[in-house]
Design a protein around this nucleic acid. Structure first.
Lengths: 121, 121
DNA sequence: GTAATATATGATTATAATTGAATATAATCA
DNA sequence: TGATTATATTCAATTATAATCATATATTAC
């Protein structure tokens, strides 16, 4: 994979925010939408850009598409882990997002509950 | 320094090429121009972008401005070294540039000679 | 089957980044 | 001093990127 394409994919705040909430485990598109409070097509487009750069890949479970890191590319470009683990959380917005992720995970609620607004952020 | 601004500065081929030829030592703007075969205003603008992101800094010697890595930022973001040392040379153009740099350095010629085309690349 | 839902995509607009040519600035050289 | 040179900057044109709204597709639930 081309270095420049990888770098371009990493140079947008929304995409860093997405990687930040994926660092502890896979999430589906609608979870990402709600957690980051961005609209559906925006989420899908940014995920597509990260997937084209091979930073993420995805798999389908019923009607949900889950995204996760592509281990092969992360091994080729270890600096991506450094960015996500060491630097992303310096961004204010990433801290907010991560707190929402924790609240969601501790709630034990489902992705559908999340969408219906059953968790107050 | 803001992560996103650093990433944006790193997501352009010309700027990666500049960092690649600076990795072994400082160079002035006109050396960079000739080695990368780009025009003067372009070189200056890309150097400016790298300097604004604090990846480079510069110092003046007579009428020449020399650019170099800003160690403080490199310490804060070690992944920049990984990109420059481990990944830049995977780009074809960086290999060409680096060969030109070696030829220039081995020639023992001055920056003025370089500009006057006394080295055939 | 039909209705509802999750995701992707097309079209459009808004914004930002990149470029080349020309010009400005500041230092040097004669 | 005036001419030259290295670098930075401005302007205009182009291109790339991001965001939004509407629609298409595919799966699930009834």
């Amino acid at each position: 994979m081309d270095l420049i394409q990888v770098m371009k994919a990493l140079s947008d705040e929304t995409r860093i925010r997405i990687l930040n909430i994926l660092k502890d485990g896979d999430l589906c598109v609608c979870e990402i939408e709600v957690l980051l409070d961005i609209n559906q097509s925006n989420a899908s487009r940014h995920l597509n850009k990260l997937t084209n750069a091979k930073i993420l890949d995805n798999y389908k479970v019923a009607k949900y598409v889950y995204y996760r890191f592509n281990e092969k590319l992360i091994n080729e470009y270890p600096f991506i882990s450094e960015i996500v683990k060491d630097h992303a959380m310096k961004l204010n917005q990433c801290q907010i997002d991560y707190a929402r992720l924790q609240k969601y995970k501790c709630s034990g609620l489902s992705c559908d509950d999340l969408k219906e607004g059953k968790i107050s952020f």
